[in-house]
Design a protein around this nucleic acid. Structure first.
Length: 904
RNA sequence: GGCUUCUUAGCUCAGUUGGUUAGAGCAUUCGGUUUACAUCCGAAGGGUCGUGGGUUCGAGUCCCUCAGAAGCCACCA
């Protein structure tokens, strides 16, 4: 290994694909304990994660790096800890999204609609599309470094998963938890399908409120009514007023005439109507409004649908038949105006229901659909979180989850689409239903051979709800299912807590009798650099591939993790990713330095020498002990933070350790120590060990660069005099063992404290040099009176000299100083006095001012601490803490004293 | 209307068993070609932690009030 082989800047472009291929080919993504193999050990604990399956036709967007970063971290961490780790990948057929995409494509390229193609041909074309583009997203997931077991990849329309869907449907049907019937549902006229409540989004918009007259039969009197949708007048079957409303009480039981259609409908009384709002009278359209539907049920009102599936007026709309809903609205209003039925219209702000997918206005309509009776399932799902079987992180989402499940309504699961799992129900001419696990050939009731399958497909989320177990082979009791189920974590965005997570929990409990996972970790959404929601209309779409090309996958992943907390949105922009690219490069170069140091080692004995300390580990310098202590602390902190899902904070601490402690301080010191025969071997060894451990800690966050450096490090060590270090390391970092935390030992604390003093002295000398404009290259003389720490400072004199730019020969270290040097700048660091004889550069007046300022500062601390120590703090706070403050006070008193003498 | 989150340096954000003088990146100022790294190094300036109260020896951190921003859920025509 020579230095020339490693480029100065980390070349992520060529490294990432090569490393990924090495991992995948090496079989590292597979669980090491496979239940399908003869040497399987059922006692090894598995760690299992099912990927939130991306849309099969989708392309990478900024949400993908988010979940991959978090999940791959979880997976790599547990793999390194020795769990038999499985991350199941796969894709979702994404009914509406995919069908729309293919439809658009067909229209653009072949100018045919799906209706023209016919169902079978269209489904065939969609499969072709899937085969052509389905690999795109999974390859992009690979680029993100995801260490999933691709040999277990699944697709929601796979035979196995389709079988699971059918089994689930049939079981629910058999238990009476699935029913079919006409209900008021949300209809998307553009997509021509029903959608569930969750798929409707409400936006506040400017609309018009129309006031008009509902004339009483055979009278000139009228009841004023207001509506936002005049076209629904055609479907009115009553006018409702509050039973106590003095204005309208007298009309209850009488009839009014529907404008334009001249139908006769009753005036009814219902408590639902608010007397204060609008005109106090409400038109009732049970066919096109959920509240009206409920009122209609109470009063046995007929239900009239006036819209067809394209939201055009149907035959119930008289002369308006065939008109689009919005045209009909205008026309009816114009006609009513002519007829003298109009009172007024005014602008009105209200919430409009729109389709989550198409964005068009959704119409409540009566339609025959399939539903899941959700309440019993919801109850069990509620209990699972309440009794702690499932933990949600962050915890606050439990409240949201409870709130949703406690108010849940039956789930409309049928969709009038072609791409998806077709409902496994067959009808004969006598309308008998046959619900079967296998395609029947005859009606189960009457034996008729003339049967046809339900045209509808299931909501995509129905199959997604089975994902954690359908991917493992359920309903078969496969070895995978038995060993890997239930899964360990479910990691996804909080935006699909209801859509997906809640449904997985409900269905998991229902079908497997177990919770599908023990922990739900919800990440936040990715926003742009200044915190705006990412959207095409805002034009702030971030293409992750562009960021990866420019800064590398590791940089992007690190950006997703650091600076964010569970459940909170994260801002990501090029600036942040660039900064983290710099970090990867920093790590790379620190790695180069260490590798080079190890490669340059020649076998030498380890003589004791100046600056060498004795510890239980052998002969190490203060700096060696210090960086080792820092690393031990980092290992403990990272472990604690990972256990608490605080990945961002863990990453930040690693960054700080690598950059500030390891690179800025230890590497600079190592340069000196490597020159010294007495310390060179131990230094190289320490460098190697610290780097190794750092790479292990960092690997779950930035897998590529750490794997690359580690490979070089390992090979270099094995060829060096310190080859014993890497003797039991595996072939690849991805399967290296996770650093074990050790109990803190006494030497750690003393090394940390001692080194902190050296750092402070160095910093204050550097500071003064900068202030006095002393050329960085100029080595200056110094006298240090170190008081009680004289032993330490003397021991570290060479270190001090090299770090602070002092001239070794002119560095005098004593316990105390008899005479204050003349013409010298003075510094006080704790109990140490430092004099820098900067002839000609020292302005006495300036010096005085500076020292006075420092004295004042020290005195304010003394004042603060004395106050603190004379308060209840001394009695009530932990003794160790009080002692710490006392020591500090003594330190400041000492400092103040020293400054005072200098000022004389 | 119900629930939730956020408000910390010029900007974007960390700061989770309450405990030194509250941190980072970017930006700014000064100085540096110290052969790991200019994707860098050294130094500096910059914060009454939204407001008001409470608990506590001690609060950015826990509780309450108010103000502003955002989100989710449910919505009166």
């Amino acid at each position: 290994m020579t230095k020339q082989e490693l480029p100065k800047a980390y070349d992520f472009k060529s490294t990432e694909p090569r490393i990924y291929e090495m991992w995948e080919k090496g079989g590292y993504f597979k669980p090491h304990n496979d239940p399908n193999k003869p040497d399987f050990d059922p006692n090894v604990e598995p760690f299992v994660l099912a990927i939130p399956p991306p849309n099969v036709t989708g392309e990478l967007h900024i949400g993908h790096p988010m979940f991959v970063s978090v999940e791959d971290l979880m997976v790599r961490y547990h793999r390194m800890k020795g769990y038999s780790t499985l991350w199941i990948p796969g894709t979702d057929h994404a009914g509406i999204a995919t069908q729309l995409m293919v439809e658009r494509d067909l229209l653009r390229n072949e100018e045919v609609t799906r209706e023209e193609l016919g169902r079978d041909e269209f489904v065939k074309r969609t499969w072709e599309w899937k085969h052509k583009y389905g690999g795109l997203i999974t390859n992009q997931i690979r680029r993100l470094g995801a260490s999933c077991d691709w040999s277990r990849e699944r697709f929601t329309l796979d035979p196995g998963l389709s079988l699971a869907v059918r089994e689930a449907f049939v079981r629910l049907y058999e238990k009476g938890l699935i029913y079919r019937g006409p209900r008021l549902i949300n209809w998307s006229p553009g997509l021509k399908t029903a959608v569930s409540d969750l798929e409707v989004e409400y936006s506040e918009e400017e609309a018009t409120l129309y006031y008009f007259k509902y004339k009483l039969k055979d009278s000139d009197e009228f009841i004023p009514v207001a509506t936002i949708r005049p076209e629904t007048i055609l479907g009115d079957t009553a006018v409702a007023v509050h039973p106590d409303d003095e204005r309208y009480k007298k009309y209850v039981g009488m009839s009014v005439i529907v404008p334009m259609l001249n139908r006769e409908i009753p005036v009814i009384a219902d408590e639902y109507v608010s007397m204060e709002f609008g005109t106090g009278a409400l038109k009732i359209t049970p066919g096109h409004d959920p509240n009206d539907y409920a009122i209609g049920q109470r009063h046995n009102l007929p239900v009239i649908s006036v819209l067809d599936t394209a939201a055009q007026i149907n035959e119930n709309g008289g002369q308006y038949k065939g008109q689009d809903r919005f045209d009909a609205r205008k026309n009816i209003w114009a006609d009513m105006k002519k007829a003298g039925l109009v009172i007024k219209s005014e602008p009105y702000r209200t919430t409009i229901p729109r389709s989550q997918r198409g964005g068009e206005i959704v119409e409540p309509m009566i339609s025959t659909q399939w539903f899941v009776t959700i309440e019993p399932l919801a109850k069990a799902a509620l209990d699972a979180v309440k009794d702690g079987s499932i933990q949600i992180v962050p915890e606050r989402f439990e409240k949201t989850y409870f709130n949703w499940l406690e108010n849940i309504k039956d789930w409309c699961i049928s969709r009038q689409l072609w791409w998806g799992h077709r409902i496994p129900v067959w009808y004969c001419p006598d309308h008998h239903m046959t619900v079967a696990r296998e395609d029947p050939t005859e009606c189960a009731t009457c034996g008729s051979k003339d049967i046809h399958q339900d045209e509808d497909v299931l909501d995509t989320w129905f199959s997604s709800g089975l994902w954690p177990f359908s991917t493992l082979g359920w309903p078969e009791q496969t070895p995978d299912y038995k060993y890997f189920y239930p899964t360990t974590y479910m990691e996804t965005g909080y935006d699909i807590l209801f859509f997906w997570v809640a449904r997985m929990i409900m269905m998991g409990i229902k079908f497997t009798g177990q919770v599908p996972f023990h922990t739900v970790y919800l990440h936040g959404l990715v926003r742009d650099e200044i915190g705006r929601k990412i959207s095409k209309t805002t034009g702030n779409v971030i293409d992750p591939l562009v960021l990866i090309d420019e800064f590398g996958t590791d940089a992007l992943r690190f950006s997703m993790l650091v600076g964010s907390t569970p459940g909170n949105d994260t801002n990501v922009g090029a600036k942040k990713v660039e900064a983290n690219r710099n970090f990867a490069n920093k790590l790379w170069n620190a790695g180069r330095f260490v590798i080079n140091a190890v490669a340059s080692l020649t076998p030498t004995p380890l003589p004791a020498g100046e600056g060498v300390r004795r510890t239980s580990e052998g002969d190490y310098t203060l700096a060696d002990s210090w960086i080792w202590a820092k690393l031990q602390q980092l290992v403990r902190d990272v472990e604690r933070l990972f256990q608490n899902f605080q990945y961002g904070e863990a990453g930040r601490q690693m960054y700080e350790f690598i950059w500030s402690d390891f690179a800025d301080w230890y590497l600079e010191i190592a340069k000196e120590q490597l020159k010294n025969d007495a310390t060179s071997t131990r230094t190289a060894e320490t460098l190697a060990r610290i780097l190794d451990m750092s790479l292990r800690l960092l690997h779950p966050l930035t897998p590529f660069v750490t794997e690359e450096i580690w490979g070089y490090l390992r090979r270099t060590i094995l060829e060096s005099p310190i080859s014993y270090l890497a003797q039991d390391w595996p072939d690849a970092l991805i399967v290296a063992s996770w650093p074990e935390q050790r109990e803190p030992e006494g030497w750690e604390e003393s090394a940390t404290a001692d080194f902190a003093l050296i750092q402070e002295i160095v910093r204050s000398i550097r500071n003064l040099r900068a202030e006095k404009n002393v050329a960085p290259s100029r080595r200056i003389a110094a006298s240090i009176a170190a008081g009680a720490r004289v032993g330490l400072v003397k021991e570290q004199s060479r270190l001090l000299a090299s770090l602070a730019g002092l001239n070794d020969a002119e560095l005098v270290i004593t316990e105390s100083l008899g005479d204050k040097p003349i013409d010298a700048a003075a510094l006080v660091v704790g109990s140490a006095e430092i004099y820098l004889p900067l002839a000609g550069m020292v302005d006495l007046a300036e010096e005085k001012t500076r020292l006075e300022k420092e004295l004042k500062e020290a005195q304010s601390h003394i004042e603060r601490l004395e106050k603190l120590l004379s308060s209840d703090f001394a009695n009530k706070a932990p003794a160790a803490l009080v002692q710490k403050e006392r020591d500090k006070l003594e330190g400041y008193k000492d400092t103040a004293q020293k400054i005072k003498t200098q000022l004389k």
